[in-house]
Nucleic acid binder design. Sequence first.
RNA 1: CGGGGUGUAGCGCAGCUCGGUUAGCGCAUCUGGUUUGGGACCAGAGGGUCGCAGGUUCGAAUCCUGCCACCCCGACCA
Length: 492
Amino acid sequence: MSKELTSRNEDYSQWYNDLVLKGGLADYSAVRGCMVIKPYGYTLWENIRDVLDKMFKDTGHVNAYFPLFIPKSFLSKEADHVEGFAKECAVVTHYRLKNDPEGGGVVVDPEAKLEEELIVRPTSETIIWNTYKNWIQSWRDLPILVNQWANVVRWEMRTRLFLRTAEFLWQEGHTAHATAQEAIEEAEKMLEVYATFAEDYLALPVVRGVKSPNERFAGAIDTYCIEALMQDGKALQAGTSHFLGQNFAKAFDVKFMNKEGREELVWATSWGVSTRLIGALIMAHSDDNGLVLPPRLAPFQVVIIPFISKNPEETAALKDKAEEIKKALKSKGLRVQVDDDETKRPGFKFAEYEMKGYPIRIVIGPRDLANGVVEVARRDTKEKQSISIEGLDVSIENLLKDIQDNMYNKALQYRDQHITLANTWEEFIDILDSKTGFVSAHWDGTPETEDKIKELSKATIRCIPLNNTLEEGKCILTGQLSKQRVLFARAY
RNA sequence: CGGGGUGUAGCGCAGCUCGGUUAGCGCAUCUGGUUUGGGACCAGAGGGUCGCAGGUUCGAAUCCUGCCACCCCGACCA
């Protein structure tokens, strides 16, 4: 099998698919729309999860777990919520199989029909708020700051590895508060956690913003989001947090006694990021040679490849030195792998680890050994240099930092160059078609206009940036008065 | 659900139009040897319900009928 990647220019979608498959992150599965996350991809997810989990705990949250199944009636209690999700729910109708009397293997036992169907959670607001009703009586029970790591199912018509699959892994935070103000602050705080994570770990610059009504989460008062830009100029929502107001408290009758002795409805938030972040990571940084992973999240940060020599003693010395370097780097807390497989040639290994996006490759051959150096190649720029083995641990630590920063800055530069102002409809369309990226333009604020723009241009309002500067202008489509520009883009 | 396409070895494909040896090629796999500073080479070997079911025929991967699955485009989609 050729390991050649489709190039980005040739076919961006195919490049992405090739990368996921050949980079060893995931495979297609026997189930339509569902993927197998392979160990390498799952390690990446674990690294993302571990960092976020710590960030959540540091902001006072605790983990819990709620059921996979939700009674159908729960979903319908919040009108907007059910409307948003009903079309993509998997439904469990029976609880037993039996042998086919006609000999066709097992069939659903019609006798075992559920009294009330269960839906497989597309998100957990309903089951959680049904539970919170029992947890909350007094202002003393608030706030509740709970997160869960879970899988959810959304029966999408069209799926793409990591970006949109029928089943995916995510975390969902669900908090309950005594006041609207506190809930809004929570939603904003968690958005900032996501933004910080994206920038500091994924090396992915994001725009923090608020969704327009059309793009709002089903059941939310306000949806905050972080929006990132991919290398093909399309936007990707990388995370969201929602101020849910009292919608779910009303739907599930969740009230508390306040300090004045009056009953009040509880205020809510929810927030989540998913394995989609892996898709974002891939599309933001990788190149035609394979994945490019940020050092802070890469499953392995360094691979050490000792050359295999004709002389067994020399080979042994090279391997020993490789292990010695590994040990030194590991003692600095780095994730390091040695590849001393004698059956594969160096060139093959180089290509392989480039495909998998290891940030640094260290090669050690007889010449290097004699000179007390190693060849260090960085994945992001593909530059190679000779570095002294003496003090190598510090050099590598610094280089990893540099790679992380460089990846961020490169993505930031691309992003900033792809936020373009448009003042006329012609400009707007032209930017979307040729330059791509975000278009900053005036919009009259109505859902009708937003729909029309989407219909005509395929672009949606990605967000209204937080702390947006107010500026009088005219709607790009209708010419109506507008108070501010919003960010449009074609999106995943 | 509309429009288009594809099902032949683990992967990628040829063969089908016009039925006829033992169904072939590349990659991968296994064995042996030579190699090893950017995806090695030589020799040998293993691996197939030709998507499924039926039909036509002396004979079907190839022709006919039905079914199934998957992919792409669209509709849909925090």
